[in-house]
């Protein structure tokens, strides 16, 4: 235990580590030893386990319709963006070849207005 690191903090960290399943074998052994030898630690661990049980109630699963709907919205919006990008590249290349510069700008402005209005 480091200096300035009080017993309560050490116990608190140890208990949380145990609950989160992050302890090494050696630390777990310390937890078991303290739980049998030290009533303060035993009480703290009991309360921490109870707290973890209470707080676990806050975890909510995504309702299936929400999960499915969100998934497809993300997928479709990215697919739209990709196809728009592809279309833009193709159209711009064609325009560059067949249409004069001034007319090209008019078309692109018109397209921008349409996209905005959509």
């Amino acid at each position: 235990m480091n200096q300035g690191y009080c017993k309560e903090e050490y116990y608190s960290d140890l208990a949380l580590g145990y609950i989160q399943g992050r302890l090494s074998i050696l630390e777990k052994q310390t937890v078991f030893r303290l739980a049998t030898e030290d009533p303060d630690f035993r009480e703290l661990l009991r309360l921490e386990l109870e707290l973890a049980k209470e707080l676990a109630k806050l975890k909510e699963s995504t309702p299936r319709p929400v999960a499915v709907n969100s998934y497809y919205k993300v997928k479709s919006s990215t697919a739209d963006a990709l196809s728009c990008g592809f279309t833009d590249v193709v159209l711009t290349s064609i325009l560059n070849i067949i249409v004069p510069q001034s007319a090209r700008e008019m078309i692109l402005i018109r397209k921008g207005v349409c996209v905005y209005e959509r």
Partner: peptide
């Protein structure tokens, strides 16, 4: 998806906004 949904539900009481 569940972690994000649960976190947002913890913060907001608006199902529409969470979605």
């Amino acid at each position: 998806v569940d972690s994000v949904y649960s976190f947002l539900k913890f913060k907001l009481n608006d199902e529409y906004l969470v979605e």
